[in-house]
Simulated assay, not measured.
Amino acid sequence: MESAIPQHLETERTRHKRVPDDYQPPYPSFVARYKPAVSRVVMAYFGVQYRGTAPAAATEALLEIAKGFSAESGPLHWDRARYVDQAGHETIVSVGYWDDTARFDAWFEPERAAWTGRQREGVGTFIEVLRPVVARHETLFSSPDRTEGVAAIAGGMSGEVQEHAYWGGMRDRIPLSQTDAMAPGGAPELIRDGARLRVMAHDNLCLIRSGQDWSDTEASERKLYLDDVEPVLREGMDFLRDQGLAIGCYANRYMQVLQADGSVSEKSYGQSWWKSLAALERWAESHPTHVRIFGAAMKYLSTLGPSARLRLYHEVTVAAADEQFFEYRDCHPKTGMLAAVETVAA
């Protein structure tokens, strides 16, 4: 049994784990392992939003960012997903991952200028970037043989890890939690740069991407997931999207992952920005919407046991203030981190 925290990031604890040293989790889970030379990762979300049928400018933007992602200094991995937001806007997000900040920096400025630097007819664009040191980041996978998100750029996967299947495991997997409470500091502020709106968030902002992959399931298991689990998950995701601000969730997107040809895959993920890891933990542990999600998932997994083919994963980052970048152009005022600040029409 391994620790989720890699050996080179282990330090003497001043803050204790939620479980004793001899804790044995009831089922296996795994984490991504970066090479020790990787000190920081980058996750960059490029979004486009519009109403109704996709205007030509949206199609053009998506082709442009795909081309940018394929450039020499582009991401080591990227994917694309879609959802309809609380204002009824179709939103398509392309997210790229890097393990080299110098490579990202060389790539980013011209791509930023092209993405939010000009108006696109009938289209809003946004960029949301985190570049955390790996000590501020954790992942968890139900299976070690298929990666998603930022784990796709890691050097490999761990063996079975100890810190999971209990409330508090998410925090215990983040190396910085050994010595730091990771409490939020400050309040989000809006900065205007012409037509661009930039949000300066605050220290220890939290991001979670939590995904489901049912592409390997057979008919009966797929029906069980889609009939009994997914509707409960969607209800919780919609709550965070529409009412999350009151409990510390600035924004939530429940996304359908798209295949290379633009069709919808049998994968989804929720991606949300939180005021703090503690706020995310409170929702996960005690809010009725997540209690129902957890209950439906446990019933599903207990029914199927080891034969379950559903794959689950997540990645969680608690980012320092200088590891964040949020910029929006012609987006409605509840888009992403704009929801965290009071905005008026430009």
Rank of each mutant, 00 (worst) to 15 (best):
L226K: 04
E218L: 09
D99W: 08
L258W: 03
A297M: 13
G270I: 10
P26A: 15
S29F: 12
S286I: 03
V232C: 03
P188Q: 06
V232R: 00
Y27S: 15
G117F: 01
T14G: 10
A279P: 04
D21V: 13
A106H: 15
S302T: 15
Q49R: 13
A61D: 05
Q7Y: 02
I65E: 02
I174R: 04
N252C: 08
S268E: 07
P55Y: 00
F104W: 07
P6G: 07
A321C: 08
R15P: 06
R120S: 00
A152D: 12
Y45H: 15
R40F: 05
Q324C: 00
H287I: 08
S268Q: 15
S215V: 06
T335E: 12
K67D: 12
G169E: 07
D261E: 07
E10M: 15
P36F: 07
D172T: 05
T116Y: 02
D180G: 03
R309W: 02
V229A: 01
G155Q: 13
E189Q: 06
R282Q: 14
D145T: 14
G124P: 00
L226S: 08
S302N: 13
I191S: 08
R118Q: 11
L140K: 14
T101D: 06
Q7L: 15
H89N: 15
G194M: 05
S263W: 04
P333L: 14
R51P: 01
E64Y: 08
K267P: 03
I5A: 01
I174E: 06
E266V: 11
M200C: 15
V93F: 03
Y45R: 10
A32R: 05
P144Y: 09
R131D: 12
V38S: 01
Y225K: 07
T179C: 07
A279I: 00
I5N: 04
A251M: 08
V134W: 04
S272L: 05
D105T: 14
E163I: 14
K334G: 12
W78N: 04
P75D: 06
V257K: 03
F325I: 07
A345C: 06
P184M: 10
R146W: 15
Q119I: 01
C206P: 01
